[in-house]
Nucleic acid binder design. Structure first.
Lengths: 288, 288
DNA sequence: CAACTATATTGCGAAATCGCAGAGTTTTCA
DNA sequence: TGAAAACTCTGCGATTTCGCAATATAGTTG
């Protein structure tokens, strides 16, 4: 099973590959060369592979071993990271992490989560990048993205710890019976909420439009009309109530993701996990 | 020293941290709980740290241990990469790597190096992105960058395996004694070569201008005038010879770098190292 | 308060590992 | 061509480590 996985064997494999011979590797590792030989043989036996071509003038890596060596070097580099942490020169949770999200989430959800995270990792500088522009997750100009989406594109790693729920809202008090709707423009028109608007609300009922839920909320509060909002936005505004006759059950998965290549950089992983954990805790409020 | 560094100890540390107790970790690891206890104690002794707060209701990680755990998780993830390679499901040298460079280097230097690399790692798709726009290395829209620069900004990892040399060139045969120079425009005017032009060539001697060495080379070959070119460009063009009276010794370090966060992703590392190795082999040709 | 669960610690026999020395083989150099 | 220098491999004794079991302590829960 997994129990025979000995991380230490990788050290020996790497040493032999870099030193070019078992003897040199043994000297470099400070152990007897017989030990190196046995551990290499054990590793090869356990995994059923042949790593090296043993010649009398040294040990050469066979070509198909190269990917394994590269993966092992990644382990070595990560171990160096651990050693830096142990030596105190580096903290592994220090540096800048850019988080990108929509204006709505960034204004109503993230600040509290980031604040909570920074108490645990005060040396991580979180840089919020607000971009409503692209709805797809794949183009990243940040290390972590928080976005509503239908799925997780490959090449990214993350989770959808909550769903973002929507509801129709209108100003408190009497709204004229013939009051119209505030439409969703820009990239919001291609979102799930925009799709619902296109399906349910005739175009001639739309009396205004905004490409931002935050602005649309203000417009509704000013009495312009009804509006479809994320529940976190609408519920937080005392001037709005849910439209009684409009029971909607729209919701979208809210994804937290980062590049697969950088997903396990400690500080990036820490931010991502903290956001996932925080969103899961806010699950009910987000779903509405 | 480094000899007692046992990568396996990290497995035990991680298991205890995740399982929440020594017993659970021992069960998960398939070993006796005394072994876990001894290895944790040994790790703490060797490194002079206290990882866990031992309470009677479990083992809690002390707050200052969190960075170490995150670094250890990065090791775990890298080991998973090794296991994927061993299982044959993944090759660790597969995927896309974007390489960005200037038009000159991309045309005269990189193709051969990339071709040689792809024979060793045929599953790595190298995507060349030609951008003369930014001379500084720090803004990356690619995984690997190859650029002349004065130094390596922090946050990047790489090396300068060669220097890019420049020389003055003129068309073969008679050039009118009063022939002018082809100037360097655009971003090239702020490069080292552009600086030399500004210092050595009076503005009134400049009869034409280009923001690309490749185009400037063609202009010189067409008889328009002298031009300062990278030696790899000028020497490759049979229609040009070095200007005899213009002995220049301009050169700039040629850096190959990638984001520190992604520097040890196997396929990215492989591309970077291959380029560094290839440029070092071409050192003389590049220096001129 | 008692039962349960958790950790810390230690002694001892078994098992795995290591270091040492020596054998066998190929390359290199004089 | 022959000796020296590498290297890979393999027994054997010594050392280390591990598993097991037992003991003591403390917090949690019914």
């Amino acid at each position: 099973m997994n129990h025979n996985s000995s991380w230490d064997d990788l050290r020996y494999v790497l040493a032999v590959a870099e030193a070019g011979s078992v003897n040199a590797a043994a000297k470099q590792l400070g152990v007897n060369h017989a030990t190196v030989l046995r551990r290499i043989a054990g590793f090869e036996d356990r995994h059923g592979v042949t790593l090296f071509e043993r010649t009398a003038r040294g040990t050469r890596v066979s070509p198909e071993t190269r990917p394994l060596l590269e993966a092992a070097r990644a382990v070595q580099s990560a171990v160096h990271g651990v050693e830096r942490v142990l030596s105190g020169h580096d903290s592994a949770l220090r540096g800048r992490v850019r988080v990108t999200s929509t204006d709505t989430i960034m204004q109503y959800v993230l600040p509290r989560l980031i604040g909570r995270f920074r108490k645990r990792a005060p040396e991580v500088f979180v840089d919020l990048v607000c971009t409503n522009a692209h709805l797809d997750l794949s183009r990243l100009d940040a290390e972590v993205t928080v976005r509503p989406a239908l799925g997780l594109p490959k090449g990214l790693r993350g989770a959808a710890p909550a769903r973002l729920g929507f509801a129709a809202y209108e100003p408190v008090g009497a709204l004229p019976p013939a009051a119209g709707w505030i439409g969703l423009g820009g990239t919001l028109s291609r979102s799930v909420a925009g799709q619902w608007m296109a399906d349910e609300v005739p175009p001639d009922r739309i009396v205004a439009r905004s490409d931002s839920f935050v602005v649309a909320c203000e417009m509704a509060a000013a009495g312009i009309g009804r509006v479809l909002l994320p529940c976190v936005v609408g519920d937080a505004d005392q001037r709005l109530v849910r439209s009684p006759d409009r029971g909607t059950d729209i919701s979208v998965d809210l994804w937290v993701a980062s590049h697969a290549d950088m997903a396990d950089v400690p500080r990036i992983r820490a931010v991502r996990e903290a956001l996932i954990e925080g969103l899961a805790a806010d699950r009910d409020r987000l779903a509405g």
